[in-house]
């Protein structure tokens, strides 16, 4: 491997660790072949569409409703996850109780459990005959095959994101901030909202964004409970799937492109907010 020793001047002086060329080569080629080149195909295909075709595909009533369902349900689910995620992280970091380790270990279940399994079992649980669905059915509330059901499935897949984003920050958080507020006479709840929560906010926002993005793109766990009623409970990824099954590749590409740009935009916003918030933590 001796020939791989690259000595290039850079900001930090001379590169002395071997392996630069090799690892750069492996990284770039694997990334290109497995991710970037396939991804570019979607832009190539989209480039072949003429504008009218594209506009028609993404502005049809069904598609617009699909976007709205995906985005609104994902947003609401991410919000619920933000609230419960903070409570969960708080309980896991600050309290000691029997079963804490088990609770901590369970958080990643939505990550490890195949989405299709989660999908059918949530559908069973919340359908009118299901253990939980039946309780609500008595009150005349339908959960499965409505947007409520979609939101619940999205909450399920999003649980780990907020908890795992907030937990390490809370663990590292210096107790002095809370003690300082306490010494100045602030109550527990006031201290939490005015002092602790702002400290957690960048991480919380990042976790919220990831859960939101995951919800928008989620397919497996949502598709069963959604019921796929056109203009009602059809999610955007399902529409792509439907178009593909009908061999309408250009429509599928157009819908996917909008969804793709949307998620890039979302990531951009999250990153910008986090970079902005970082200014406050400069020492």
């Amino acid at each position: 491997m001796g020939q791989q020793i690259v000595k290039v001047k850079n900001k930090k002086g001379i590169r002395v660790i071997p392996g630069f060329g090799l690892s750069m080569g492996v990284t770039l080629s694997m990334l290109s072949i497995l991710v970037l080149i396939p991804l570019v195909s979607i832009f190539i295909s989209a480039g072949k569409l003429d504008f009218q075709e594209f506009a028609e595909a993404v502005t049809s009533k069904q598609v617009v409703s699909g976007y709205i369902v995906s985005i609104s349900c994902a947003f609401f689910a991410a919000f619920v996850n933000a609230v419960f995620g903070v409570i969960l992280a708080w309980v896991l970091v600050r309290y000691d109780f029997p079963g804490r380790r088990l609770m901590d270990g369970l958080i990643e279940l939505p990550f490890a459990l195949p989405t299709a399994v989660a999908g059918i079992s949530l559908t069973y649980l919340y359908s009118d005959e299901g253990w939980i669905g039946a309780l609500f059915a008595k009150a005349g509330i339908k959960i499965a095959y409505t947007r409520t059901g979609i939101t619940i499935a999205m909450i399920f897949v999003g649980i780990p994101f907020v908890v795992r984003a907030v937990q390490p920050v809370l663990k590292r958080l210096d107790r002095q901030y809370e003690e300082a507020a306490q010494m100045l006479g602030a109550g527990r709840i006031y201290t939490f909202f005015r002092v602790t929560l702002p400290e957690l906010f960048p991480a919380l926002f990042g976790g919220f964004g990831l859960a939101f993005a995951r919800g928008i793109g989620e397919y497996g766990s949502v598709v069963f409970i959604a019921g796929n009623i056109p203009n009602e409970t059809q999610i955007a990824p399902l529409l792509i799937m439907t178009k593909l099954e009908q061999y309408k590749y250009s429509d599928a590409t157009a819908i996917a492109l909008v969804l793709l740009l949307l998620s890039f935009l979302l990531m951009l916003v999250i990153n910008s907010v986090q970079i902005y918030m970082q200014r406050f933590s400069k020492e």
Partner: peptide
């Protein structure tokens, strides 16, 4: 790939 819908991940391979 983290921020992309899995359905789109499948689609890009069909389009390739």
């Amino acid at each position: 790939p983290l921020s992309i819908s899995p359905v789109i991940a499948g689609l890009v391979f069909i389009l390739t």
